[in-house]
Design a protein around this nucleic acid. Structure first.
Length: 537
RNA sequence: GCCCCCAUCGUCUAGGGGACCAGGACGCAGCCCUUUCAAGGCUAAAACGAGAGUUCGAAUCUCUCUGGGGGCACCA
């Protein structure tokens, strides 16, 4: 039944909201609740005609970093929003660069972020296999089709000759491109040489005149002079297809409608466009995302700088962010807003919010510097909205990793104490470990009350111990009441007295609120710690 | 060197000819609150890269320059 006052239509809200309504639709819904049935039927129709099929196609050569995570996120969002499919495809045609375990870590990082795929190497799907290493013959077949059409050719040049050509061209300040030595070889002759087992590659026959126009969703038409295009290699001498061929054949066969990728692909996009055209296929929508710059805004993150980052407790790798105590919700929120915005003030988004509100049109094409202090901020924001059980469950592994034997009950008890005080989950250990230690130590001079002699301090401590001993109802409110009374009787300020007690029970200057800590610590251990402290005075 | 992309506070951004002496957020500084640490509230400082043009009017459109970035492999 409708939730809008005065509206008598019969659609449920979830039905309306989950019908892949575009981001503006929810506003319409608010404005015209009675028109909902009509609106919903329009959205249904639109989304049925417009299921986006998108793919995330990483090569398993290392950790998943922020840039890939963002691409995958946008892919996921647009697929969910249009009730389309998000495809995970592994681009592992370069057998030399494979990294053991990278594919598994990649999937784990994606799952941790909550970005799940509909089709992929582990799940299968109607257009598999989804690992390029299992599709070698497919690329061969399509490469030969291009040779048939005279849009590609065999090239027998050795890499030695190639690098010589390149050097000479560079010396003459020319484009360091292939000189076309094999471009016009007699086809029958070339076939013969291939049959005889002569090493060869297959090159694309790029046009030499005219221009190629690539339409990018964010940048409009981009014009390239064909004279600047190289005869790119499509198939290597080992028979494996290169990205340029493999990705395009796969995108076509997998019916990909939108290609979202980094702007480092912009320079080769005319080549890709030409290959689509050579086959006579209709190109997908091209969306080239801006690159991420290092925090200073000066250039892309280098390997060296990525390593240096970890000294500051940051990282551009998803796996590290998890270990550092960041929430996937925060990483998603943060990364989504690097290059995309919803309006001029909304910044807090859950994954579901993003599915509803994301739109490719609002993407920003300019490069963005990575800002880790904003990640810290988002992490705090997302920690704030976690309930005790959730937060407790998330901090438990960090206590265990630090060697504390804690239960989920312990963690739920301290969840409210750390919620507003931690930036990353592992901060909770530093803040609250004293509650779980068997014994604590004090710096000798720290157990003092300013302006009091040690005899006086000891007397005040004894008195406090008596008060604590007499507390039968061990709650925050009672502790506060009794101890505040005692403080007033002794004409002490809160600062003087509570700092002393804080030090006595924790061995620290700064802790979560005193009475909360005592409450979690329990009566017995509180008394024990105060007694031990008194011995030191 | 050549090709391509980009250009609003330190950073992420809103803005798409008049509503802009430019709005929000992070960070920074100050104040309030306060038993510590936080959290929260309030306030401040902080930007349209430069020059031409179009226009009654330009952050917004055009051009040039400058700056920044990306790419030029039998990597992806």
């Amino acid at each position: 039944m409708c939730l809008f006052p005065g509206c008598h239509c019969h659609l449920s809200v979830t039905e309306a909201v989950h019908c892949s309504a575009p981001f503006w639709a929810s506003d319409w819904l608010k404005a015209y609740p009675c028109e909902r049935e009509i609106l919903v039927s329009i959205w249904r129709k639109m989304s049925q005609e417009n299921h986006y099929r998108v793919r995330f196609a990483p090569s398993p050569t290392g950790h998943v970093h922020l840039g890939s995570a963002r691409t995958a996120l946008y892919d996921y969002l647009i697929a969910k929003q249009t009730q389309g499919q998000f495809i995970l495809r592994i681009e592992d045609t370069d057998r030399k660069r494979l990294v053991e375990g990278a594919e598994e870590e990649l999937m784990n990082s994606m799952r941790w972020l909550g970005i799940d795929w509909d089709e992929g190497p582990d799940k299968g799907g109607p257009y598999g296999p989804y690992r390029q290493s299992e599709r070698k013959e497919i690329y061969q077949k399509f490469a030969h089709e291009l040779i048939e059409k005279d849009m590609a050719y065999y090239c027998f040049c050795s890499s030695e000759r190639l690098s010589k050509v390149r050097q000479e061209k560079q010396k003459d300040k020319q484009l360091p491109h292939y000189d076309g030595f094999c471009r016009n070889l007699n086809k029958a002759e070339a076939e013969e040489r291939v049959k005889n087992g002569e090493p060869h590659v297959i090159r694309f026959k790029s046009p030499k005149q005219g221009t190629t126009v690539v339409h990018d969703l964010l940048r409009g038409d981009i014009v390239f002079e064909n004279a600047n295009l190289d005869d790119f290699i499509l198939v290597k001498s080992d028979g494996w297809a290169l990205y340029h061929l493999a990705a395009i054949v796969d995108d076509y066969l997998m019916k990909v409608t939108h290609v979202i990728r980094g702007s480092e692909w912009l320079p080769t996009s005319p080549l890709h466009s030409l290959i689509w055209q050579a086959f006579g296929w209709k190109e997908p929508v091209w969306v080239h995302l801006s690159v991420f710059l290092k925090p200073s805004g000066k250039g892309k993150m280098s390997k060296r700088e990525a390593a240096d980052l970890s000294n500051d407790g940051y990282s551009i790798f998803i796996k590290d962010l998890e270990d550092l105590g960041y929430l996937p919700e925060a990483v998603i929120n943060w990364v989504a807003l690097m290059g995309w915005s919803y309006d001029d003030h909304t910044e807090f988004f859950t994954l579901d919010d993003l599915v509803e509100k994301f739109s490719l049109e609002k993407l920003n094409p300019s490069p963005a510097a990575i800002n880790f202090s904003k990640l810290d901020y988002f992490n705090k924001q997302h920690i704030k909205v976690l309930d005790d059980t959730d937060l407790g469950g998330r901090i438990q592994p960090f206590f265990e990793k630090a060697g504390y034997n804690v239960t989920i009950k312990d963690m739920e008890a301290i969840a409210p104490l750390v919620r507003d005080r931690i930036t990353t989950l592992d901060d909770s250990v530093e803040k609250c470990a004293f509650l779980f230690k068997n014994s604590i130590t004090h710096a000798p001079e720290s157990l003092a009350i300013e302006g009091k002699t040690s005899q006086e301090t000891h007397r005040i401590g004894e008195g406090a111990l008596n008060v604590i001993n007499r507390v039968s109802d061990w709650t925050i409110a009672v502790l506060e009441e009794k101890l505040t009374d005692y403080m007033n009787q002794n004409e002490l300020t809160p600062k003087e007295f509570f700092s002393f007690l804080r030090e006595a029970i924790s061995g620290q200057r700064a802790t979560p609120p005193l009475f909360d800590c005592m409450q979690v610590l329990g009566k017995e251990r509180t008394i024990q710690r105060v007694e031990e402290s008194l011995k030191l005075i």
